[in-house]
């Protein structure tokens, strides 16, 4: 009984056939789930990255500013528009309350994003693709992206970062 102590010899009671069947099935599924994650790291194309570097807001800001100057092609609503070459290091800055720069990329090409924050935690939420990553101050998160669709994409901040949190929205443009 749940409230009363178990019956004598409870440890030796045979497990019923249906319960045994279910537990076996559940165990197999659980093992498959574990190995699936490992296998996806080898054959799958979407994986959280292996690479993080330590940095500081000052250092990251300096690197990002230099990057933006190098590849800047214009401005949009006061935010630099930057078109980096494929296979290069791209710097994306999160700060209260905007994303810098606006990036112009090419579909089917790889870009090594370095994402970091100058102040609080922020959330990188790429819409409408719906890919979500965290952005930290003091940590450079290196995510190598390959856009597989073209068009205009929004970067929504989805980690609470103060009263202006909902105004924090960036842009990525992917050309064919």
């Amino acid at each position: 009984m749940a409230l009363l102590p178990p019956e004598e010899g409870w440890y030796f009671k045979k497990v019923a056939k249906d319960e045994k069947m279910w537990i076996t099935l559940a165990l197999v599924v659980c093992l498959i789930l574990f190995f699936w994650m490992v296998v996806w790291h080898i054959y799958g194309k979407q994986n959280p990255s292996f690479t993080t570097y330590r940095t500081t807001p000052q250092e990251f800001n300096a690197l990002a500013t230099a990057f933006m100057e190098k590849y800047k092609t214009g401005e949009m609503n006061g935010i630099p528009v930057v078109e980096p070459p494929p296979n290069s290091d791209v710097f994306l800055v999160a700060k209260m309350w905007r994303w810098e720069p606006v990036l112009v990329l090419k579909k089917g090409q790889e870009y090594r994003f370095h994402i970091s924050s100058l102040d609080l935690l922020h959330g990188f939420s790429l819409q409408p693709v719906n890919m979500n990553f965290m952005v930290y101050p003091g940590y450079d998160y290196v995510l190598t992206f390959k856009p597989t669709s073209a068009g205009e994409f929004a970067i929504v901040c989805n980690e609470f970062c103060g009263i202006g949190h909902h105004m924090m929205i960036g842009k990525i443009i992917v050309k064919e």
Binding site: R54, T55, A66
Partner: peptide
């Protein structure tokens, strides 16, 4: 964790 590689930093600043 290690810091940002110096070659990358060099190439920019």
């Amino acid at each position: 964790l290690s810091p940002i590689p110096s070659e990358l930093k060099q190439s920019l600043i």
